[in-house]
């Protein structure tokens, strides 16, 4: 957004000569597609004034608590989270923030489903949301397997047959604690975080979808 940006002042139809500098091309593309007044807006359309639009941001808040409590748990280890009072508190904080994360993610899903949030070029935003939902279920499942207690052993042994029956037991072994723990604390959270950032940027780029029938007339 600097005053010296070469992309500013050009007419929309004009094609600027292609720069050889990839940093310049990247900066121009960001200026074109992700202007700051869209990324950090201070005003919203009138129809955003509903509690339904709050579910998404509450989901993100819950995810922040999930990640923060998970970082503490992974740093301190299973003996701490089972045997100490503070450890059990953080264990509970992690568990209950996950419950809120899923509850508000599903409420956000209902809201977006009934307002057909995939309209007007927002299909990719919707599909990334679906993928986040799927990965979140897998992350929660590997979390149950990472508790290091009898419940996690019960889940692992009962799930093993299902995974074998589905044909994925050889490379996704629920009895392999190291694999489940590694997936739970590293790969899957990183995937969710990257996709959530992409999801938010896409929402901010295009804005919130308009209501289906705002004036009682034709669909927009």
């Amino acid at each position: 957004m600097s005053a010296t940006s070469s992309s500013e002042g050009a007419s929309p139809g004009a094609t600027a000569p292609e720069s050889r500098s990839w940093t310049l091309r990247l900066r121009q593309a960001i200026d074109r597609h992700l202007p700051m007044d869209h990324l950090l807006p201070d005003r919203q359309p009138y129809y955003v004034g509903s509690w339904v639009y709050v579910f998404g941001v509450v989901t993100i808040a819950a995810l922040a608590w999930v990640i923060a409590s998970g970082v503490v748990l992974s740093f301190m280890g299973p003996q701490w989270w089972h045997d100490s009072r503070v450890g059990r508190f953080f264990n509970s904080l992690h568990f209950w923030s996950v419950q809120l994360f899923f509850i508000f993610m599903v409420l956000h899903l209902w809201g977006q489903y009934f307002m057909a949030g995939w309209r007007s070029g927002r299909a990719a935003t919707w599909m990334i949301g679906v993928i986040i939902f799927g990965i979140s279920i897998l992350t929660a499942f590997t979390g149950y397997l990472s508790q290091q207690n009898f419940a996690s052993q019960f889940v692992a042994i009962n799930a093993k047959d299902a995974m074998n029956g589905a044909g994925i037991g050889a490379f996704f072994s629920v009895l392999n604690f190291g694999q489940m723990y590694g997936l739970h604390v590293m790969l899957l959270p990183i995937g969710i975080t990257i996709l959530v950032v992409a999801h938010i940027v896409m929402v901010r780029t295009r804005g919130v979808v308009k209501p289906i029938d705002p004036e009682g007339g034709a669909r927009p």
């Binding site: 869209h38 201070d42 919203q44 359309p45």
Partner: peptide, 9 residues
């Protein structure tokens, strides 16, 4: 005040 269409392409 009421918002306008900022952020809504």
């Amino acid at each position: 005040e009421e918002g306008d269409d900022v952020g809504n392409k």
